[in-house]
């Protein structure tokens, strides 16, 4: 067993920080778009409009049946072609990033949609009746009465999903994008210190995710009283 040699890490910190920025950028984008688009999907699925509900269900179920790795590869195949055809954008280095952002945003929407749907269903039916009885139309009822309560109920779940998402962004490795994990792998490979860099990356992920999950738990406790 070799002894560990951590000396290549301090010099690599700027590269690793750049990688972490990419990780955070993908996480934030996917979370934001995911919650917005996920809300639309959830409401469509709960709506009385049969074709609309069916389409939303098909979207959600398809994305939830396919591995994220495949979804990332799919969009890395589709997005560049579309960008070229519609916008005339040439194959630039940014294309990996754009593909990844699209893939994660659309993929996470399916998962957020299910959380939000459960959240909406957790609001008692009487609340909708009361809003209707006060003369609020459906959109106003959703916006003022149902969704605020639903989001409050599901805040811990939404944040937990964000932690999972943060970890899953490491899979952009399959299209060669240098997120935090990709950067760590590259540095480790370059310096012949893969073992150290992998353990370091694992430790960083653990500290961030464990810390965040403790915060979520605290929040949950505060809200549940």
């Amino acid at each position: 067993m070799d002894t560990f040699d951590w000396t290549s890490i301090p010099g690599a910190l700027p590269i690793l920080a750049d990688g972490m920025l990419i990780t955070l950028e993908i996480t934030a984008t996917a979370m934001l778009v995911g919650i917005l688009w996920g809300t639309v999907l959830a409401l469509a699925r709960l709506s009385g409009n049969r074709p609309l509900a069916w389409l939303a269900a098909a979207y959600v179920n398809l994305f939830r049946a396919v591995p994220l790795v495949m979804v990332i590869l799919w969009f890395y195949l589709i997005v560049p072609t579309l960008l070229q055809r519609w916008l005339g954008v040439s194959q630039s280095s940014d294309i990996r990033m754009i593909s990844a952002l699209v893939a994660f945003a659309l993929f996470e929407s399916a998962y957020y949609a299910e959380i939000i749907r459960a959240g909406v269903q957790s609001v008692p039916k009487g609340q909708v009746d009361a809003a209707f009885a006060l003369g609020m139309p459906y959109p106003l009822t959703m916006r003022l009465v149902v969704l605020p309560q639903a989001f409050r109920n599901m805040l811990p779940l939404l944040l937990t999903q964000a932690i999972i998402l943060f970890q899953d962004t490491s899979l952009v490795y399959v299209i060669g994008l240098a997120d935090f994990f990709g950067a760590a792998y590259k540095v480790g490979d370059r310096d012949g210190r893969l073992v150290e860099l992998l353990l370091f990356a694992g430790a960083v992920y653990f500290i961030l995710c464990f810390g965040a999950s403790l915060l979520v738990r605290q929040l949950q406790k505060k809200y549940s009283t």
Binding site: M1, D2, Q167, F181, L199, G202, Y205, S213
Partner: peptide, 23 residues
């Protein structure tokens, strides 16, 4: 907590690349 808070990909690389070195 350990297995839930480290990305699956990182875990896989640790099993594959790191474990043989630690044995």
């Amino acid at each position: 907590e350990v297995f839930r808070n480290v990305p699956l990909l990182v875990q896989l690389f640790i099993w594959y690349f790191v474990l043989p070195e630690l044995l």
